[in-house]
């Protein structure tokens, strides 16, 4: 690794700190300007002022804003968010440690699927611009983009678990297996591998297939279009013409020269897609009863669980900041102009 690249990465990591601070501050502000009193909504309309004060005291909401803000920062940095208000009042840290891996396990294959299929078909369509395959790919990408995720999910459920019972309908694993399943990390696929539990691995993968495919496909539409547009532009650039004039084969010009340069805008989109992914995860998790963070958030919003919601969104913000950090580092590896 060159000195300049190392310098870039260190600078970028340091820059993440103010970025996370800003995000956390935004979450703090939003939670406080949102309409509705968390105490009232939690306890219902008919509580006495004394009862409300007890809860307010417990949540620290009676203290000055600046102290609350300090507390929230400490919570976020130490990952110690206190207990949830509902559903057994367990420590939120434990709940997130259970739900977040489920979402990540769903998202990673979805993103890989999206990136591979999206980039490949976008590049292929660009290479065959204005030929039938280009029109077909463009049409399909509009189609998957415009079908709502839960409709698509439902469709796949009907097709592949009801009509053709290939994949399980919902959940992360067969209930029978789950009873004896040892899950230290809550990433079921990883847990099954490290414990050498092969039937469980099969079950985890089978359960993962449909939701990951649905989520991935839903995200692919935009991706095909973005890759295609950027590739077309890239293929018209001078260095491609110059390469052609040197006798570099067309395939190499498309898949090596143009595509590698197109990765720069594509990476940005992958980073941004993580935000869309979270929205998609909520819908996918609901459709497939996937016990991840998306479903957790919806559930706790419905229960007006103030602490759980605030912590989850805070963690999510940090997650997005982390992804953006990783994307920028990848960026620097691909584009030499950034790291100098």
């Amino acid at each position: 690794m060159s000195a300049s690249l190392r310098k870039f990465i260190i600078t970028r990591i340091l820059l993440t700190i103010p970025m996370v601070l800003i995000l956390i501050t935004l979450v703090f502000i939003i939670m406080r300007i949102l309409p509705g009193d968390p105490i009232r909504s939690q306890l219902g309309p008919r509580v006495t002022e004394a009862q409300a004060d007890v809860l307010r005291e417990r949540l620290g909401l009676n203290r000055p804003l600046i102290v609350q803000y300090g507390d929230f920062l400490v919570e976020m940095i130490t990952f110690d968010f206190g207990n949830a208000l509902t559903q057994g009042e367990r420590p939120i840290k434990d709940e997130l440690a259970e739900k977040l891996p489920a979402t990540i396990e769903l998202s990673i294959p979805a993103v890989i699927f999206m990136a591979v299929l999206g980039v490949w078909s976008g590049a292929y369509a660009a290479k065959n611009r204005k030929k039938p395959v280009d029109y077909i790919f463009r049409l399909l990408s509009i189609a998957v983009y415009s079908i709502p995720i839960f409709v698509m999910g439902l469709l796949f459920q009907i097709l592949f678990s009801v009509r053709l019972p290939v994949f399980p309908l919902a959940g992360r694993m067969d209930t029978v297996m789950l009873v004896s399943f040892d899950s230290p990390t809550n990433f079921y696929v990883i847990d099954a591998i490290i414990t050498g539990n092969w039937p469980a691995l099969g079950s985890a993968l089978a359960h993962l297939a449909l939701p990951a495919f649905t989520l991935g496909l839903a995200l692919t539409g935009v991706f095909v279009r973005l890759t295609r547009v950027n590739m077309i532009e890239m293929l018209q650039s001078d260095f491609i013409t110059a390469g052609r004039a040197r006798g570099i084969p067309e395939r190499r010009l498309v898949y090596k020269h143009a595509l590698r340069n197109t990765f720069i805008p594509i990476l940005t989109l992958i980073g941004l897609q993580f935000a869309a992914l979270m929205a998609g995860a909520v819908l996918t998790e609901t459709t497939f009863s996937w016990p991840g963070i998306g479903r957790y958030l919806v559930e706790r919003i419905e229960l007006r669980d103030y602490t759980a919601v605030q912590s989850t969104i805070g963690v999510f913000a940090m997650f997005v900041a982390g992804i953006s950090l990783i994307m920028d580092i990848l960026y620097a590896f691909i584009d030499p102009r950034i790291r100098y």
Binding site: D238, F239, T241, H257, N261
Partner: peptide, 8 residues
């Protein structure tokens, strides 16, 4: 613009 920006 006539050289590939990501190649040495």
């Amino acid at each position: 613009t006539s050289l590939n920006p990501v190649q040495t």
